[in-house]
Amino acid sequence: MAASAHGSVWGPLRLGIPGLCCRRPPLGLYARMRRLPGPEVSGRSVAAASGPGAWGTDHYCLELLRKRDYEGYLCSLLLPAESRSSVFALRAFNVELAQVKDSVSEKTIGLMRMQFWKKTVEDIYCDNPPHQPVAIELWKAVKRHNLTKRWLMKIVDEREKNLDDKAYRNIKELENYAENTQSSLLYLTLEILGIKDLHADHAASHIGKAQGIVTCLRATPYHGSRRKVFLPMDICMLHGVSQEDFLRRNQDKNVRDVIYDIASQAHLHLKHARSFHKTVPVKAFPAFLQTVSLEDFLKKIQRVDFDIFHPSLQQKNTLLPLYLYIQSWRKTY
């Protein structure tokens, strides 16, 4: 089996927390979720979201995140109150960019949308954001926290390059993509939290790379249903696996070995980020709550012996909000 052949990389499970039942964490995340308004986002309300009498641009960002990046939404709820709305805006910006690729039928249209967001970032730093909910909220975040323009532009530029429907040539190319998107998002989150620390940035770099790799793995069944495969070609070739094997949902050992190798790289990034947690300011830990969902996925895929098409991998963990709150309460990542 794939797991038994390579099992030495995987460390002990961390979500089991001995003695936790003896201490009762304060009510927090679930209460916040219940208090949030929840009407559906419609095209009509989106168009009017920044106008008078609408929910408001902040509510639009929150709803977009809740629907399109639920794990990011849950993590954002546990940030300090003064930072929450800015991170909602930042993550909503990322969602807007991420959904361009799947929402257009022609690359030219995707490039036009990316050009809109490039100009939007430029206009935000000229205090002239367009009348668009996410743009307005992002402008507020930039003004409030003096966010670095370079990180925002890196996210747009990398998403634009990724409009080509090509597999990553190697794991390094996937890591570079993750660094310029997910890690950049974390650098900006640290700025919102008021953290300027080399060790925190180092952790953000590795956690962002782990996030990018896990996202690529999780999306494999969806991409396969659209006749697309984006997994690193070098690892596929190493194990003699073709793109057609993934399109046919082949579950042979060599296919699972490909998934094992890729998942192991995410695991190593996560492990390395945690190896120097004592040197990272505690104030930075809330920015890294996504490690909970990353670890949850890596454990699940290990349990199914790296069968990327196993139905259990597509099921939401209903206990994730609780695990996130516990992680926040324990002040760790």
Score class of each variant (00 low, 15 high):
residue 46 V to W: 07
residue 49 A to K: 15
residue 52 P to T: 14
residue 54 A to P: 13
residue 59 H to M: 09
residue 60 Y to I: 06
residue 60 Y to A: 09
residue 61 C to Y: 06
residue 61 C to S: 09
residue 62 L to A: 11
residue 63 E to A: 14
residue 64 L to P: 01
residue 64 L to I: 14
residue 65 L to I: 13
residue 65 L to M: 09
residue 68 R to Y: 11
residue 71 E to K: 02
residue 71 E to D: 11
residue 72 G to N: 11
residue 73 Y to G: 00
residue 74 L to P: 00
residue 75 C to Q: 11
residue 76 S to A: 12
residue 76 S to L: 06
residue 77 L to M: 07
residue 79 L to C: 15
residue 83 S to P: 12
residue 83 S to T: 14
residue 83 S to H: 14
residue 84 R to S: 05
residue 87 V to F: 13
residue 87 V to E: 03
residue 88 F to C: 14
residue 89 A to Y: 01
residue 89 A to T: 04
residue 90 L to E: 03
residue 91 R to Q: 08
residue 91 R to A: 05
residue 92 A to S: 14
residue 93 F to R: 03
residue 94 N to S: 06
residue 95 V to P: 01
residue 98 A to H: 06
residue 100 V to C: 10
residue 100 V to A: 13
residue 101 K to Y: 14
residue 101 K to M: 14
residue 102 D to P: 09
residue 103 S to P: 07
residue 105 S to N: 14
residue 105 S to L: 12
residue 106 E to S: 12
residue 109 I to E: 05
residue 109 I to T: 14
residue 110 G to V: 06
residue 110 G to A: 12
residue 111 L to H: 14
residue 113 R to E: 05
residue 113 R to V: 07
residue 114 M to G: 04
residue 117 W to G: 00
residue 118 K to H: 09
residue 121 V to S: 00
residue 122 E to V: 07
residue 124 I to A: 05
residue 124 I to C: 04
residue 125 Y to F: 14
residue 126 C to V: 15
residue 126 C to S: 15
residue 126 C to L: 15
residue 126 C to G: 15
residue 127 D to W: 01
residue 127 D to T: 06
residue 128 N to Q: 14
residue 128 N to C: 14
residue 130 P to H: 07
residue 132 Q to L: 14
residue 135 A to L: 02
residue 137 E to K: 04
residue 137 E to C: 07
residue 138 L to K: 02
residue 141 A to V: 08
residue 142 V to K: 10
residue 143 K to T: 11
residue 144 R to Y: 09
residue 145 H to T: 04
residue 147 L to Y: 02
residue 149 K to R: 08
residue 150 R to G: 06
residue 152 L to A: 02
residue 154 K to V: 05
residue 155 I to S: 05
residue 157 D to Y: 11
residue 158 E to F: 09
residue 159 R to C: 05
residue 160 E to Y: 14
residue 164 D to L: 15
residue 167 A to F: 14
residue 167 A to D: 08
residue 168 Y to K: 01
residue 169 R to A: 12
residue 169 R to Y: 12
residue 176 N to T: 15
residue 176 N to D: 12
residue 177 Y to K: 04
residue 178 A to T: 00
residue 181 T to D: 00
residue 181 T to Q: 03
residue 183 S to A: 11
residue 185 L to C: 07
residue 186 L to V: 08
residue 191 E to R: 04
residue 191 E to S: 07
residue 191 E to A: 07
residue 197 D to A: 08
residue 198 L to N: 04
residue 199 H to R: 11
residue 200 A to L: 00
residue 202 H to S: 05
residue 203 A to K: 00
residue 204 A to H: 01
residue 205 S to Q: 05
residue 206 H to E: 05
residue 209 K to V: 05
residue 211 Q to Y: 15
residue 213 I to W: 02
residue 216 C to N: 10
residue 216 C to S: 10
residue 217 L to I: 08
residue 217 L to K: 01
residue 219 A to F: 04
residue 219 A to I: 03
residue 220 T to I: 13
residue 220 T to L: 12
residue 220 T to H: 06
residue 225 S to R: 10
residue 227 R to V: 10
residue 228 K to H: 15
residue 228 K to W: 12
residue 231 L to H: 03
residue 233 M to A: 08
residue 238 L to I: 14
residue 239 H to L: 02
residue 239 H to A: 05
residue 239 H to K: 07
residue 240 G to N: 14
residue 241 V to K: 01
residue 242 S to M: 06
residue 242 S to F: 03
residue 243 Q to T: 09
residue 243 Q to I: 04
residue 244 E to M: 05
residue 245 D to T: 11
residue 245 D to S: 11
residue 248 R to F: 04
residue 253 K to T: 14
residue 253 K to I: 13
residue 254 N to K: 03
residue 255 V to I: 12
residue 255 V to L: 13
residue 257 D to W: 06
residue 257 D to H: 10
residue 257 D to S: 12
residue 257 D to I: 04
residue 258 V to T: 11
residue 261 D to L: 06
residue 263 A to L: 02
residue 264 S to T: 09
residue 268 L to E: 08
residue 268 L to D: 08
residue 268 L to P: 01
residue 269 H to Q: 08
residue 269 H to G: 02
residue 270 L to K: 01
residue 272 H to A: 08
residue 272 H to T: 14
residue 273 A to H: 01
residue 275 S to E: 08
residue 276 F to V: 08
residue 277 H to P: 04
residue 279 T to K: 13
residue 280 V to H: 00
residue 282 V to A: 12
residue 282 V to P: 12
residue 283 K to Y: 09
residue 285 F to W: 15
residue 286 P to G: 13
residue 287 A to S: 05
residue 288 F to V: 02
residue 291 T to W: 01
residue 291 T to Q: 02
residue 294 L to C: 09
residue 295 E to K: 05
residue 296 D to F: 08
residue 297 F to A: 05
residue 297 F to Q: 06
residue 297 F to V: 05
residue 299 K to L: 14
residue 299 K to I: 10
residue 300 K to C: 13
residue 303 R to W: 07
residue 303 R to E: 10
residue 305 D to P: 01
residue 305 D to I: 02
residue 305 D to H: 07
residue 305 D to S: 07
residue 310 H to S: 09
residue 310 H to C: 06
residue 312 S to N: 10
residue 313 L to S: 02
residue 314 Q to A: 11
residue 316 K to Q: 12
residue 320 L to P: 00
residue 320 L to N: 03
residue 321 P to I: 04
residue 322 L to G: 04
residue 322 L to M: 12
residue 324 L to E: 00
residue 325 Y to H: 07
residue 327 Q to W: 07
residue 331 K to C: 10
residue 331 K to L: 12
residue 332 T to C: 13
residue 333 Y to R: 02
residue 333 Y to C: 03
residue 333 Y to S: 00
